[in-house]
Structures are given as structure tokens and as C-alpha cells.
Amino acid sequence: MAVIICSTPTKPLRAVVPVKGLLPLIAPSLVLVLFFAIPMGMMIGISFQSQTEGSPTLASYSRFFSNDLVLAGLARTVVMSGLVALCVTVLAYPLAYYLARATSRWRTVIFALAIAPELAGVVLRTYGWLIILEDRGFINSALIWTGLITEPLPLSKNLFGVVVGLTHVILPFGVLSLLTSLQGINPNLEKSAQILGASRLAVIRHIILPLSVPGIVSSFLIGFTMAASAYATPALLGGAGFKVMATMVYEQVLFYLDWPFAAVMANVLLILMLAAGFIGSRLESRLHQKLHL
């Protein structure tokens, strides 16, 4: 996916060109209702259906919350997403800081390098990581050749491989959200701190880090939500045993054909996302207040 930076408009504009009501809105609304609202409503409805009886039931939900395998998948999803969010934020921060402050011509090159992989799509990158991390792959064959190890290290078909792959996929989004935040910090604040005697480290600790906390939160949030709903990377880099919500939903729909259960899983995933989004945005506005930005 490509990334284009744009901000959501904040100030409503008075009418410039007179329009007869909201006529042009009909087509997009219709598409939205037909292709999105109705299917979503239907999916929620299906989650209360039972395969045998006609009346609404919570059976599928209770099945979800009493199934250890499924709950383990949910826990795995949360752990994996948290790790990915952490890695994304940690790796994105130096890059975003460089991009926010650099003025040399390298900046454009590095910006392109940081963002361009998004164009390549998830498959190409996951494939690349498979080649690198596999038992007979790039890293293991190199390590065995040097004699450091005799047996391949378990780098793929497990949590490690998935976290590496997802971090790579999501990193550009982390960079962009941190970049927005870091660019909002007036460079004169750093200069002021420096001339007041603050060393490089003190400037980072007292000025840059505290002021970029909202960016850190939003990068973490993007990392978490994108990782939790990713499908291809966990499926390929995690191997058959590595089940997360996204891959389990897929199996329910296409192999077991258990639609109510699939719908429950999709709903739980949705609620997880919405909750993360809600907490994140509350935290962000709190921080803005607290930092007096």
C-alpha cells in the first residue's frame, strides 16, 4: 500500500457553490449502506443465530469464550500485536526524528527508502522474510556455513518470524505518525534548551521525548491494530500451528463453514480494535491536555 499524507479537515467551510441539498451524496451513501452497513449488520445478526434453532441465542459467544484453543488464539493475537507495536515504534522513532530534522538531500532518499516498500505489497515482503528466516534460508545457511551453529535456529514458523514480518510491513505507518508528531515540535525549543546548557541527551529526555508522547501513542496504536487484523503475514510466516484471530476467522468461513462462529470471532476482533482505538484516542487527547500542546 502506498501512503499519502493528508490531514482530516478540521474547519467546516460555508457553502461556496450552491448545491441543491445533498444530492451528490446519494450515490456514495447508497454504496456505503449496501456494501458496508447491511453486511455488517447482517454479520452481527448471524453471530446470534444458532445452527439448529430459529430464535436468537448467545450459544456461539459462549462457545467462543469456553474454547481454550480459540482463547489461546485471542491471547496470541494480543501478545503478537503488542510486540509488533513496540518494535514498530522503537524502530520508527530514530527514522522519524531524522526525517523531521534533516535538511540535507539525503532526507529525500531516506524518506523514499522508508516509505517505498509499502508499494511492494505484503506478499513480496513476506516472501522476502521467508527466504531470509527459513530453516535453509539466508541467515541460517550463513550461520551454519560459518560454523557458529550446526542446527538451524527457529526463526520462522513461530512468533519471532511473524513479529519480524509484521514489523516490517507496518513500520512505514509508524514512521509517518511519529513524523507528524515530531515535525510539530518547534526546532527552536531544542535550540533554546541547548543554549540553556542541555546536552544532546538532556534535550532528548526533557524536550523531544515528552513532547512526542502523543506520536508514540498513535504509532503504537497503529502498530497494534494493523497487526491484530493482519492475515497474510501470520499465515505465511507463522506456519500451520500459529493461529491468530485473523487466520482463525478465515478457517471458520472457508473450511468449517460455521458462519455464526465466524461472525462471533469477527465481532470480537472488531470490538478489540474499536476498544484499542477508543483507548488510544482518549489517551491522546488526555496527553495533549497534559502536555499543554
Binding site: P39, M42, A262, N267
Partner: peptide
């Protein structure tokens, strides 16, 4: 609003629909 719904959930919704 569709942005805040994960793709995989949108996919399930459309296929179930």
C-alpha cells in the same frame, strides 16, 4: 467509518452477506 473496521472483518461481513 469503514476505515475503523479491520479489513478481515469487512471481508467476513461481505462474504456472509
Amino acid at each position: 467509518s469503514p476505515m475503523s473496521v479491520p479489513q478481515i472483518v469487512k471481508g467476513v461481513a461481505v462474504v456472509l452477506f
